[in-house]
Every structure is written in structure tokens, then in C-alpha cells.
Design a protein around this nucleic acid. Structure first.
Lengths: 243, 243
DNA sequence: TCCTGGTATTTGGTATGCCAAAAATATTCG
DNA sequence: CGAATATTTTTGGCATACCAAATACCAGGA
């Protein structure tokens, strides 16, 4: 790139790169509708309501103040995610997963997380690994997780997400987040259970130790077994939730 | 449920469940367009063309003989899959993955497949496991894979898909297939390489043996290492493909 | 010739309207 | 009264028209 001429030049764009990246294209209605509907679906306790939940395009478009077109596109996206299923001339139903499906998802999650653990042992910085302990700093002998289930549950999810992120693998992160969204509503009812919460913390610390020790095989195994334990728990005790 | 009256009843639906599930709702234009576009994208050699490939809604709608509406819904779905990315007022671009992304996907694939192997050792029937050998029955000492790369590549993919299916885990199957679609076009250029093909067959047989022996840990390890080997290979030798 | 404006065109985004199938409701007839 | 039937309403699918932003193109002037 040639140096700027020293003579008085006509007004040109300043040479210094002004910090203008690109005018942010304000998200389209389609994407706004997608986010809004996704959040609404995740928020509603789908497994608590007895009859199946239906969505109505026209009602939604009126509710969100946009036409049906962007709504329909958002629905199409949600259907790809597996959150809803549209039945022609019938309606749009919010998908309920069966217990078997949830267990299956948790197993896949275990697979992805154990791979993340494996990668972390070879690439992550010690500092970042140790930082994982912070998620549980509020819990200990004098403040047991099983006495603060709700709070621990949040820390738990945050820990797992941070763990996966340390792998620096966008694919693992994305896939896991997707799975977590499906399992989540469910977690509120099961993961928080006291009997499991008690064993959860030590297992988490065990994973962190293996990561710090750069023991690839052990870290993978502990991460896998921990989440598979959850799967087994749901399979054994989650019956009543899927009537 | 009350028992049917024994008196001569007026013509009603037969009691025996006739195997009619539901009149198949002939797929909508939206879904047809989705399948058509997906196939077209996968078929085109996206990594061979120098300039980025763009799609045009109007051209597509004319080409497929439908209006833009179902086309746009199909595009929205493909975008969820990560096959295309639409830029407002600019166009729809077919996404190119970088080498790093492909490697990342293969790692995730390895994670899922190793979990499948794990599950198979505890649930699959001996007969079905043994049947996996059939995919390679056309290859041997007198007919080396590296001399029939194209044919072996197909057998290879079929084997992996059959393997995952044996896990009887819909989630693992779906996630793996999705990943495979992204990696596939790529495989044509890399997996078929002679140097790797030579080691592939023995590794496959090793996996099958571990499955037959119901050795959970070993099967998992072999499945994982086999696919991670592919990831390492692409990472090391796939450079020239991503100019 | 080259730069500058301005104009026409392209392209995705959105709103509307109509259609047919399905469901819900009303009606008719034995 | 009850069941079969006709009618209305509901609902997703699709086509079309218009908009605004981004781009491409073109004419005029230094």
C-alpha cells in the first residue's frame, strides 16, 4: 500500500482504519420470530401440560405484530431443530420427547463431552482448567449442593458448558448446546434431585483433576461416566415424568 | 375402554387394527424444494469451484416451478443445517467449511461413533455384528482396497453407517449422518487416498472383533482412534484442498 | 481518461390474499 | 332422539405484489 501523499490532498477516507466493521444488519423478523418462539417453547413446561401444545400461525403473527410469512419461516427452522412438528391442515405441535429419546440424547451428550475432555487435556491452558472450580466455590462441606438444588443446578449447567467451550471446538459446543436445550426442561425435574446432586460435585472435581493432570484417558472416562450416570439415572427414575 | 355391544351394530370401523397409519400427506413443495436443493448442494463439488457459489431465490423458484415462498422456507431450513448462509440484500451463499471445521466435525463424529460402539457391545446381536464384515467381503489379499479406491470408499461409508445404526440410537444416527453430509464431498478427495486406504480395512476388522468380543472399552477405543486417525490425516494432508 | 453522481436493476424481506383439506358445527331425516 | 349429512370455520400451503437496501450501470464533467 503506497504511503499517503504529503501534499494537501482532497478529502478522502481517512487512512487510519476507523473502527467501522459493518453496519449491523438489524436482525430480520424471521430471526426475531425464531428466537422469540424458541425461547417461548423452552420456557413453557412442555412436560407438565397434559394435552399437547399447539401453535397457531395467525395467532402468533398477530401476537408478534408481523405477517405470517416470517412466522412460517421461523417455524420451518424450529422444525429443523426438532422443537416443533407441523402437520398439514392440522396444526403445529410442540414436540414432546419420550423418556427413551431423552436418555438417548444424554448418551450423545456424554460422547461429545468426553471428547471435549480428551481435547482439553492436550490444548487447554492450566489456568483455564483450574478456573472450572470457580463454578462450585459456593458449595462445600458447610454448604451442601443438595441443600441448594436450584442454585447448584445452574452452576452445574454453567460448568458443563464452560467445560465444552474449553475444547475450542465449535462443533462440539454447538451440538452439545442443541442437545442441552432439549434435555434442559427436563433437567429441572430430574437433575436437581437430591440423591443425584450429592454425587455430582465430587465427580465434577474428579474430572477437573484429571484434566489438570493431563491424563487424557482418565479425563475422557470420568467425563463420559459422569454423564452416562445421568442417563442411567433418568432411565431408572424418570418414569413418572412421561405419563 | 368399554366392550363393543354384542347386538347387530350398524356398519362401523373394524375392530381389528388395520395397518393403516395415516394417508401419507404428499410432501409439500417446501419439503420437495428442501430435498432437491440439499441434493443439488451436496452433488456440486463446492470445494472445486474457485469463486463462492450463490443461489438465487427467483431463479430457483422458476427452475423448480414453484413460487418463492416454499423456496424461501426450504432455504431457511438449509440454513439451519449449515449448508447455506443468506446475507440480506446480497444473496444466498453455499457455505464452505474450512479445513479446521472439517477436522472438528470428524472429531465429533469420532466421539459419536465410539459411543455407538460402546452401546453395541451391550445390546446388539452377535449376528448383526458379524454381518458388518460383509461390507468388505469383496476385498482381501487378492483384491486390495487401495486398488479400488472408489468402490472401497462406498463400502467404507456404508460400514460406518451400518455400525452406527446397530447402536439403535436415533440421536447418534441422525447426528452422525448430518456430520457425514458435511464431510462427505470432502471425503471423495481425501479419504480415498491410497496411503490411508491401506490401513483402513484392518482397523475396521479390529473394531468388529472387539464388538464380537463384547469388549466395551476396546471397541470404543478402536472406533474412536480409527476416526481420529482420519481427522489427523485430513489435518496433515488436506491443506491443498482449502486454498 | 478517470472520477463523480445519479439512476436502473437486482435481491432478499415482508405483507396479503386465496386455496383446499380437515375439523367443527349445524341440519335434516328416519 | 340419534345418526347421517350438509355447511361453516379453521388451518397450513402457496402465489403474488411491493418494499428497501445493495449493487450495477451509465452519463456528464474536470
Amino acid at each position: 500500500m503506497p504511503a499517503p501523499k504529503q501534499t494537501k490532498a482532497p478529502p478522502v477516507m481517512a487512512d487510519a482504519d476507523i473502527a467501522i466493521v459493518r453496519i449491523a444488519p438489524e436482525t430480520s423478523f424471521k430471526n426475531k420470530a425464531y428466537e422469540a418462539l424458541k425461547e417461548a417453547i423452552l420456557k413453557m413446561d412442555i412436560y407438565a401440560t397434559p394435552e399437547q401444545v399447539m401453535l397457531d400461525e395467525r395467532a402468533l403473527s398477530e401476537r408478534l405484530g408481523v405477517s405470517r410469512t416470517p412466522i412460517r419461516e421461523a417455524i420451518a427452522m424450529l422444525e429443523q431443530d426438532g422443537f416443533v412438528k407441523t402437520v398439514p391442515r392440522r396444526g403445529i405441535v410442540v414436540v414432546r420427547r419420550t423418556k427413551t429419546e431423552i436418555v438417548d440424547m444424554i448418551r450423545a451428550w456424554a460422547a461429545l463431552e468426553s471428547m471435549a475432555a480428551r481435547l482439553i487435556t492436550t490444548t487447554a491452558r492450566k489456568k483455564d482448567i483450574t478456573a472450572l472450580r470457580d463454578f462450585f466455590k459456593d458449595f462445600g462441606k458447610d454448604r451442601l449442593p443438595q441443600d441448594h438444588v436450584e442454585e447448584y443446578s445452574k452452576a452445574n449447567i454453567a460448568f458443563h458448558q464452560a467445560l465444552i467451550s474449553l475444547s475450542e471446538s465449535p462443533v462440539l459446543v454447538d451440538l452439545t448446546n442443541d442437545l442441552l436445550l432439549h434435555v434442559r426442561g427436563y433437567r429441572q425435574l430430574t437433575i436437581g434431585r437430591k440423591d443425584r446432586t450429592a454425587t455430582s460435585l465430587p465427580e465434577h472435581l474428579g474430572i477437573i483433576e484429571a484434566l489438570e493432570a493431563r491424563d487424557t484417558e482418565l479425563a475422557e472416562k470420568r467425563a463420559r461416566d459422569h454423564t452416562l450416570g445421568l442417563a442411567a439415572y433418568v432411565e431408572a427414575h424418570g418414569q413418572e415424568l412421561f405419563t
